[in-house]
């Protein structure tokens, strides 16, 4: 293979680097007005974004959705996973299987099912961003399971909780003051990945005709390519910032964990 030949390997790496970097360069160039003829580069598209109709509202909506999704995701999953590890180790396979289900059900199909399943539900839930929060928590289950499972497996959970309980802590107190601080890296990665997912999700929001930042970006694209590309780059930079944070967090742990928890994370994130 090329790995024996430094020159061949360098050529391979340069070609891959070109494939991955040129599009990013092109997109950044576009957002700086590089596609306009006879004009220098400018920041005016970036600064002009804020005056675009609907930009601020929809960005705020998406940030709100992301925040609520993370809270709900962790409030639901951290106690569940701790309980599972502590009291129901035999159910782990089953719960893992359930958490991986969103991988097998494409986001388009979930969106289609929502229309049929919640017809009789109040409009305040199904016609608002709340339904997106509820579904994004579901879409986040595969990587949340992996992350929390890895975190909980790495600590002597039973001993810690028993120690806390024997000193008089109730179960919620033991969870909050003993378990949570010991798996905070795992909780942080799960939360950050959930936020990145909720910020960028397009499919379900678009098909349910709800307004979020990605949906707004798509609509902007039909009128003004520069604005849409700039908004898309904003989503991109925000989620990359979050993802870099995860890989930074992961470096503190054993090298194996973040990668194993990373590999199943993508299917079903609704692209």
């Amino acid at each position: 293979m090329t790995s024996r030949l430094p020159v061949g390997r360098a050529v391979v790496l340069v070609m891959f680097a070109a494939y991955f970097l040129v599009p990013l360069y092109a997109a950044v160039d576009f957002t700086l007005g590089g596609s306009r003829r006879n004009m220098g580069h400018t920041l005016s598209i970036w600064t002009g974004l804020i005056h675009q109709d609907g930009f601020t509202e929809n960005l705020m909506t998406s940030l709100k959705i992301a925040a609520v999704t993370v809270v709900l995701l962790l409030v639901l999953m951290v106690p569940t996973m701790a309980w599972l590890h502590l009291r129901l180790p035999r159910m782990r396979r089953l719960v893992e299987g359930i958490c991986l289900l969103p991988m097998a059900i494409p986001a388009v199909v979930i969106a289609n099912g929502i229309l049929g399943a919640f017809k009789s539900w109040p409009e305040a839930i199904t016609g608002s961003w709340w339904i997106l929060v509820f579904e994004y928590v579901v879409l986040a289950l595969p990587f949340t399971y992996r992350s929390l499972d890895a975190g909980l497996s790495a600590i002597p959970l039973a001993t810690m909780v028993e120690a806390a309980r024997s000193l008089g802590a109730s179960w919620p107190v033991a969870l909050w003051r003993v378990v949570v601080p010991n798996i905070r890296t795992a909780i942080a990665s799960a939360g950050i990945l959930g936020a990145a997912l909720a910020l960028g999700e397009f499919t379900i929001a678009h098909l349910l005709l709800l307004d979020t930042f990605p949906v707004w970006t798509d609509q902007a694209g039909q009128q003004d390519g520069e604005v849409a590309i700039t908004a898309a780059m904003l989503i991109l930079f925000l989620s990359w910032l979050l993802l870099m944070l995860v890989s930074h967090l992961g470096r503190g742990r054993k090298a194996k964990k973040p990668e194993t928890s990373g590999k199943k994370q993508k299917v079903g994130t609704g692209r």
Partner: peptide, 13 residues
Amino acid sequence: YFGGLPLAFVFLA
């Protein structure tokens, strides 16, 4: 993780 909408716009650019 980079899919969805932003990827499409990056390639359009």
